[in-house]
Design a binder for these strands. Sequence first.
DNA 1: CGTTAATCGAGACGGTACGTCAAGTCTTTTC
DNA 2: GAAAAGACTTGACGTACCGTCTCGATTAACG
Lengths: 207, 207, 207, 207
Amino acid sequence: MQSRTAASRPGRPRSATADTAILAATRDALVELGWSKLTLGDVATRAGVAKTTLYRRWPGKNELVVDAVAELFDELELPDRGSLAADIEGVVLQFATILARPEARSGLMAVVAESTRDDALRQRIRESIVDRQKCLVLEGRSRAQARGELPPEPDPSESARTADLIFDVIAGAVVHRALVSAEPVDTDWAHSFAGLLLNGLTASATA
Amino acid sequence: MQSRTAASRPGRPRSATADTAILAATRDALVELGWSKLTLGDVATRAGVAKTTLYRRWPGKNELVVDAVAELFDELELPDRGSLAADIEGVVLQFATILARPEARSGLMAVVAESTRDDALRQRIRESIVDRQKCLVLEGRSRAQARGELPPEPDPSESARTADLIFDVIAGAVVHRALVSAEPVDTDWAHSFAGLLLNGLTASATA
Amino acid sequence: MQSRTAASRPGRPRSATADTAILAATRDALVELGWSKLTLGDVATRAGVAKTTLYRRWPGKNELVVDAVAELFDELELPDRGSLAADIEGVVLQFATILARPEARSGLMAVVAESTRDDALRQRIRESIVDRQKCLVLEGRSRAQARGELPPEPDPSESARTADLIFDVIAGAVVHRALVSAEPVDTDWAHSFAGLLLNGLTASATA
Amino acid sequence: MQSRTAASRPGRPRSATADTAILAATRDALVELGWSKLTLGDVATRAGVAKTTLYRRWPGKNELVVDAVAELFDELELPDRGSLAADIEGVVLQFATILARPEARSGLMAVVAESTRDDALRQRIRESIVDRQKCLVLEGRSRAQARGELPPEPDPSESARTADLIFDVIAGAVVHRALVSAEPVDTDWAHSFAGLLLNGLTASATA
DNA sequence: CGTTAATCGAGACGGTACGTCAAGTCTTTTC
DNA sequence: GAAAAGACTTGACGTACCGTCTCGATTAACG
């Protein structure tokens, strides 16, 4: 006894290629028009799809853009450059590369702005984008601990709180630098930032 | 020899009270409706003003909201709590208090999102909001140097770059914690963050 | 081999009832407000239709009013009262009855005024209103010729020119009496006018 | 004891040249823009005058245009061409010449259209434009009677009614020909029309 | 000859309607 | 029954004029 799967549902099945085409069209439209001038009718046209098809799959502009942008962040991965400082530097530069793409810039910030008044949307953003990257912090830390660069966690309950703090610092600083200050996140800056953070972490740990 | 002042310009002078009423109405509307449902017609009605009066003074929604939100951030000031850590903690909590207000949350992030495709808007944000707060970093640092908590700047050209970095880290982390992670920026978090940053600064300086 | 008929066109077909409702609402609004205070938004509301639906079918206020007024003139028909004088009298009174309706008064003159600067509009007025009534003149004349009241046309090329002249005289005189002089077009006046015209026609013909 | 004349009123007297400039500017604007796109702000600008100056002298667009157009019709005069037919022909051609000017075409018909819902305006039109030309009919008729072309009026009460009828026929036919049928009012047409009317008049009179 | 008062220019004001555009829904035919 | 097509309602957009108002600056007759 199972709920009717898509395959076994009667009638014409949903086109599998449509989803891909719609998300790609959404990103294209974000690049050309930005968030505020992006219209679902235009996205549908670009995707070669009727507006109704689009509304059947996403409830609205916000959710569509979250999904379209989320795919961009999936390419983030933790490089193993041999030291914690170099790893931080690497992930910062990767993050900056993604934020340099206009579809990521407008899309991400816009949905975050919308999420300030829409808890379901914020939940969706966290699940689709934020939390999937938080493991990078955990992995980086445990790798550094294995290398002996950081001491092991004394208190497991404290561990998660610290990881959240580090994540907010890294992600927040890069986003602020890139989008608000609008200064380049280049090797120099990444190096300075990684130095500051690393010093903070080791000093805090030994204190 | 001066450019025509407002007083000597011919014609009926602009109502002085209108600006105040409009900005207040904008913040009210942000609270009730959020950025995306805020309409200039509604703001005008709330302010008891005609739509044309609003458009005569601001080119659009973006610029209006920047000015409306900017006033919120003017209340930020650097507390003198006796130590750099305490000062950082204090300013972080002040910042968090402002970001807890719904008009600041939606307004700020939305205009930042818009500014990713509008350089003039980004410039306006920087002048009206960001740069006016950057002096807090400069003042805090020099106060810490006077206290002997931080060494004096060796290289003046480096000094500005470091201040920018610190500003991006503080502002970015608080914004990310408050709006993206959507976790409370409470005394605990502020304390942990101030500790991390302070350690990073002192260790970096002595290294 | 035909151009796609309405029935076989893809997509939702246009509502058939909307046209009727819009034209009726236009006439209602003309009665209540007159031409200059008539707004398309108000017409749409009266018709229970969205403004966009209205604009999808008519390019603007002028064309809409032409169509709305044209239907009023379709009820004109040539009475057979047994003599040319009586027929003229009858049609003049019919015309006057229509011009007594406020929707015809304001609507007709206004679109004629607009048509002085818009050739397409003038063409539309002629096709929808003027030329459809010109056959009344032709029919009345041939009926009078059959009765022997008027001689048959000697020169067929002259025939059309004379019909145009008669039409301009009848329509012009009635309109001028009703709208400019603002005096009643009653049986007396119609009788005097028909007498004058009839005398002119017979005298000219025998001359 | 007299009501304060303009001359004796205290304060700065109204500029005498302004009226002339405004009426001329109104006609210019009618030529370029037509009635519906003519705005009082634009007229004021063209006349080199402030909008308030304009509103101080005319209550609105309708009245202004009536006055501006009325001046055009003052140049109508009855030619003495030696016969009634020729006199009619002459005045018809003069009328047609005025109606060929775009400011007369749009202006006249538009205010007539407006007057269908504004009795004060209709009164103003009659006083400023229509009635001032009605004497042409009276003068033409008495001249024809002096020549013996028409019999003297038997019944003086009938006399005014007939003059009104003739006026409506002439003015109405010319306007309808020129503006509705949009055919040229040339010598040929004027000749045919004058013949028709003359025959009607003489036949009626002798009947 | 200075006061007085209505004029002048300029332009901001509260309104109202404009014609367009996008959102999201609904109704067709086609696949 | 999903899909494309496109008409539908709704509501905001930013603009243009309306007719009124508030300014400072003229400009004549009156005292």
